[in-house]
Design a protein around this nucleic acid. Structure first.
Length: 264
DNA sequence: AAGCAGGGCAACCGCTCAGAC
DNA sequence: AGTCTGAGCGGTTGCCCTGCT
């Protein structure tokens, strides 16, 4: 059975929000809250918008505590470390960056950090875009002929589905229902790359309110069997013999981890 | 000056999950 | 137990802006 649409698509406005719409939504939510029902909210205030659209607009733009742009180096490093450790769990990453939204971080990663981290070895997005914008263009790297492609559909045995779910749950998120943690091979199994305070943070985060999760996290953060699976390819990559050369700009923790991972 | 390519960001889409019934 | 519905997530797309030729 098909799913009923969340709103009447024919009577819903799409596209950029006008200042008036912003003001209307903002003032209502500030005064009354969302009422726990985003779907009904637009009708209440006379907005011709989908409830989901209102929610997104509020969360990503209108919330009072939102920061836009101007990512600090610390934030860069944190995003990189987290991405490399847990993959594209933007909501989890955002939870560690006050004032940042998952969308913001996602965009920032896709447009800036990816390039910082991997340099210019990237499939030309522009070309793809003209030919037909498809999945490959946004989430694929090209290694410049080395045969490495990250397509975001790898599987990761290191992070158990339960662990990801629990962490995700802490920030109100979801994970895929197939019980498999879909991640790029690159980001697959590298919890050792998480900075120590963050590992502790994640561990306590999950275990404090979620009994039983600690076992998973213990497993996750066990470093006696540290492997840099997924990073293996870097070992043979010409020009990346020393991780300090990967990028002078980001992820010192990644570089440290690779150059001296046994210290963990 | 015009046209094109590429970058950046806001917003939408489709999916899953969790809770209510 | 099964179904329905809203919330929330990650991926993708649209569009505007800027820089280059």
């Amino acid at each position: 059975m098909g799913r009923a649409p969340c709103c009447d698509k024919a009577n819903v406005k799409k596209g950029p929000w006008s200042p008036d719409e912003d003001a209307l939504l903002k003032s209502y939510v500030e005064q009354h809250g969302t009422g726990g029902n985003w779907i009904a909210l637009p009708q209440k205030i006379g907005l011709k918008r989908c409830g989901k659209s209102c929610r997104l607009r509020w969360l990503n733009y209108l919330r009072p505590d939102i920061k836009h742009g101007g990512f600090s180096e610390e934030e860069d490093n944190l995003i990189c470390s987290l991405y490399i450790s847990i993959g594209s769990r933007w909501s989890i990453i955002a939870a560690h960056l006050p004032g940042r939204t998952d969308n913001d971080i996602k965009n920032y990663w896709n447009t800036k950090l990816k390039k910082k981290l991997f340099g210019k070895h990237r499939t030309d997005r522009g070309q793809c875009r003209r030919v037909g914008r498809a999945k490959q263009e946004t989430d694929r790297f090209d290694d410049g002929g080395l045969g490495i492609i990250i397509d975001g559909v790898g599987q990761n045995d290191y992070w158990t589905s339960t662990s990801i779910r629990e962490l995700h749950g802490e920030v109100g998120g979801r994970s895929s229902s197939d019980g498999v943690c879909h991640q790029s091979p690159l980001v697959a199994p590298s919890p050792p790359l998480l900075p120590q305070p963050l590992r502790e943070d994640c561990a306590s985060l999950a275990s404090s309110s979620l009994p039983g999760v600690s076992t998973d996290l213990d497993e996750l953060f066990r470093f006696d069997s540290v492997k840099l699976e997924g990073f293996d390819f870097f070992n043979g990559v010409e020009g990346v013999k020393n991780w300090n050369e990967v990028s002078p700009l980001v992820c010192p923790s990644v570089v440290q981890a690779h150059n001296g991972v046994q210290q963990w």
